[in-house]
Measured scan of single mutants.
Amino acid sequence: AVSDRLIGRKSVVMEAISPQNSGLVKVDGETWRATSGTVLDVGEEVSVKAIEGVKLVVEKLE
């Protein structure tokens, strides 16, 4: 599936994300709604860990 190619990809937070609120990330020039178990600020680099419905699950790059 097209979405499977996103797992493991680097992306950049475009709208802040917290455990309570989804935000936005940009992956390969496309904007996606995303969630995370931690707070992520605009501009942080993250990695796509999973896809749940139409949202990406991301975490901060170490």
Results as ranks from 00 to 15, higher is better:
1 A>M: 13
1 A>W: 11
1 A>I: 12
2 V>T: 12
2 V>R: 12
2 V>S: 12
2 V>E: 10
2 V>C: 13
3 S>Q: 11
3 S>P: 14
4 D>A: 13
4 D>H: 14
4 D>S: 13
4 D>T: 12
4 D>F: 03
4 D>Q: 13
5 R>G: 09
5 R>Q: 09
6 L>M: 08
6 L>P: 03
6 L>W: 04
6 L>V: 06
6 L>Y: 05
6 L>S: 03
7 I>Y: 00
7 I>G: 02
7 I>A: 04
7 I>K: 05
8 G>W: 00
8 G>I: 01
8 G>F: 00
8 G>S: 04
9 R>E: 05
9 R>K: 13
10 K>E: 06
10 K>N: 08
10 K>S: 09
11 S>Y: 03
12 V>G: 02
12 V>M: 08
12 V>R: 07
13 V>P: 00
13 V>K: 00
13 V>D: 02
14 M>Y: 08
14 M>S: 07
14 M>E: 07
15 E>R: 05
16 A>T: 10
16 A>N: 06
16 A>P: 10
17 I>K: 01
17 I>A: 02
17 I>Q: 02
17 I>M: 05
18 S>N: 08
18 S>R: 06
18 S>I: 08
18 S>G: 10
18 S>E: 05
18 S>P: 02
19 P>V: 05
19 P>Y: 03
19 P>T: 05
19 P>W: 00
19 P>R: 05
19 P>A: 07
20 Q>I: 10
21 N>F: 12
21 N>P: 01
21 N>E: 10
21 N>W: 09
21 N>M: 13
21 N>R: 15
22 S>N: 10
23 G>P: 00
23 G>V: 02
23 G>R: 01
23 G>H: 00
23 G>K: 00
23 G>Y: 08
23 G>D: 01
24 L>C: 08
24 L>Y: 11
25 V>K: 01
25 V>Y: 00
25 V>H: 01
25 V>A: 04
26 K>V: 13
26 K>I: 14
26 K>P: 02
26 K>E: 13
26 K>S: 13
27 V>E: 00
28 D>Y: 04
29 G>A: 05
29 G>C: 12
29 G>E: 12
30 E>D: 09
30 E>C: 13
31 T>D: 12
32 W>D: 09
32 W>S: 08
32 W>G: 08
32 W>Q: 09
32 W>R: 09
33 R>H: 14
33 R>N: 11
33 R>A: 15
33 R>Y: 14
33 R>Q: 15
34 A>I: 01
34 A>V: 05
34 A>P: 08
34 A>E: 08
35 T>A: 07
35 T>G: 06
35 T>I: 14
36 S>L: 02
36 S>N: 00
36 S>G: 05
36 S>H: 01
37 G>A: 14
38 T>M: 13
38 T>K: 07
38 T>P: 01
39 V>C: 14
40 L>T: 03
40 L>K: 01
41 D>V: 11
41 D>H: 13
42 V>F: 05
42 V>G: 02
42 V>C: 09
43 G>D: 05
43 G>I: 01
43 G>E: 04
44 E>Q: 10
44 E>Y: 05
44 E>G: 02
44 E>R: 04
44 E>D: 10
44 E>L: 08
45 E>V: 15
45 E>L: 14
45 E>C: 15
45 E>M: 13
46 V>Y: 00
46 V>F: 01
46 V>G: 04
46 V>A: 15
47 S>Q: 14
47 S>R: 15
47 S>G: 07
48 V>I: 14
48 V>T: 03
48 V>G: 01
48 V>L: 01
49 K>H: 07
49 K>I: 15
49 K>G: 04
49 K>N: 06
49 K>S: 08
49 K>L: 12
50 A>S: 10
50 A>T: 06
50 A>I: 04
50 A>Q: 07
51 I>H: 05
51 I>T: 05
52 E>C: 14
52 E>M: 12
52 E>V: 13
53 G>K: 04
53 G>F: 02
54 V>A: 14
54 V>P: 10
54 V>Q: 14
55 K>N: 14
55 K>G: 10
55 K>H: 15
56 L>H: 04
56 L>G: 03
56 L>I: 05
56 L>T: 03
56 L>W: 00
57 V>P: 03
57 V>H: 07
57 V>L: 08
57 V>I: 10
58 V>G: 02
59 E>F: 00
60 K>T: 06
61 L>E: 09
62 E>K: 11
62 E>N: 11
